[in-house]
């Protein structure tokens, strides 16, 4: 047993806040079991030791925002058998993709005393715009349950149970009271990818769509209802879709329709 060959794992960071990588460290109870089955070969945030590639699994956090990163992601791809994009940044461009709706040079002029030092692309984009991604884990941050599930599925050669249906399904299975229907609180759960176990509605708040668009998200119908029934103004509807996953296509289109 002790000598069995363990798959090699690397964890990469691009433009991001490190929160998703932290979810891996946060798997306290499972971390030892993970380390028994997997060789953590490259994970600067967690371990000093660096084992050279190629790697069997690469978990990649962050979006592509610089020319340098746009090249580096291809290197990661070449070194990895399986690439798993983790988190809203890696899967949709993240909160930093708000720049995609504006002129990034102008931002730099306001924020930095010497904007000429800033070298950045005009858009923040998900990994899938640059390379072939084998699997995506959504969320800001990702769910550690889904992360362990995905690693476990990989190790046991089965499909991960990471459903792409609505948050509502999780919400109802939990026995929550729907905040939309019972309180008139706007909730993005019906158009949002499951995975958080309906965290916000469980605490009586509407869903903020941290996990991005679900399969077949009918954002138009939800917006119409929010406008007509909850009296939301266009500006507010625009903002509710322009959050963590603003640049995910269905949300981008919906927010642009309310500009």
């Amino acid at each position: 047993m002790a000598t069995k060959k363990r798959p090699k794992l690397a964890v990469w960071k691009f433009a991001s806040c490190d929160g998703c990588q932290l979810s891996l460290l946060d798997c306290e109870d499972e971390l030892l079991a993970v380390a028994r089955e997997i060789e953590v070969a490259y994970f600067p945030e967690g371990f000093r030791e660096v084992i050279k590639g190629p790697y069997d699994i690469s978990l990649v956090e962050g979006s592509i925002t610089t020319a340098h990163d746009a090249e580096r992601i291809h290197k990661v791809r070449r070194m990895s058998k399986t690439v798993i994009a983790i988190g809203a940044c890696a899967t949709s461009g993240g909160i930093q993709a708000l720049r995609n709706f504006k002129d990034v040079k102008e931002f730099a002029r306001y924020v930095y005393p010497r904007p000429e030092y800033i070298s950045t692309l005009s858009k923040s984009t998900p990994l899938s715009d640059h390379i072939n991604v084998d699997y995506e884990l959504r969320g800001c941050p990702i769910s550690k349950v889904q992360l362990i599930e995905t690693v476990s599925a990989f190790l046991n050669s089965r499909k991960p149970n990471v459903p792409s249906h609505s948050v509502c399904m999780e919400c109802k299975r939990k026995g929550n009271i729907c905040v939309m229907v019972a309180k008139g609180i706007p909730c993005l759960g019906p158009v949002t990818h499951a995975g958080c176990d309906a965290l916000c509605p469980t605490y009586n708040r509407g869903c903020y769509a941290c996990f991005g668009p679900k399969e077949s998200p009918n954002t138009g119908s939800l917006s119409r209802w929010l406008g007509e029934r909850s009296g939301m103004k266009d500006k507010d509807i625009m903002r509710s879709f322009r959050g963590i996953n603003a640049y995910a296509e269905p949300f981008r289109k919906e927010s642009e329709a309310h500009e």
């Binding site: 079991a33 028994r36 362990i148 690693v151 046991n156 509502c168 399904m169 158009v191 077949s216 009918n218």
Partner: peptide, 26 residues
């Protein structure tokens, strides 16, 4: 329709379910 599934979740006759297998890492 939002295809959110709420109607089937609250319906007292809907019976559909899915089966999920969970495996330990080892």
């Amino acid at each position: 329709c939002l295809t959110c599934g709420n109607c089937t979740m609250v319906c007292p006759t809907c019976f559909c379910h899915t089966i999920e297998d969970k495996t330990a890492l080892d």
